[in-house]
């Protein structure tokens, strides 16, 4: 056990990497809020016009990036067994399909009224 604990420690990224990830997470969160605020206030008008149609996609991408950073570095999936990654990613994959199917079906039903 001690051996594998040591092996773990060596495998885990150092404090520097953790700090870097924290900074990126914070920045991405700021970008999310910024994107929201620009569209919400409609200013600067030019940027808001460009952003408005894609803001949902932008938010999803930013959030996925944050999600991946936490999972890979803080949850150590980058170093740990791929089995753990599988246990996490497979349900996400199933759930994403289910949610997409549900949204599609409910929007269809809505279109009938």
């Amino acid at each position: 056990m001690t051996d594998s604990a040591l092996a773990h420690e060596h495998a885990h990224p150092g404090v520097k990497a953790y700090v870097l990830v924290a900074v990126i997470l914070f920045t991405l969160t700021a970008l999310e809020v910024l994107a929201f605020e620009i569209v919400d206030r409609g200013s600067p008008a030019g940027l808001a016009a460009v952003l408005a149609p894609v803001v949902v996609a932008v938010l999803l991408v930013l959030s996925a990036a944050k999600f991946a950073l936490v999972a890979m570095f803080y949850m150590h999936l980058k170093q740990d067994s791929t089995l753990f990654s599988g246990l996490f990613v497979f349900p996400i994959f199933v759930a994403a399909i289910l949610i997409a199917a549900l949204l599609a079906m409910f929007s269809y039903m809505l279109s009938l009224f």
Binding site: V15, Y18, V21, A22, L25, Y74
Partner: peptide
Amino acid sequence: LFSSFFVVLALA
């Protein structure tokens, strides 16, 4: 988010 950062340091 920061609490997540803190707990990895605690673990280290």
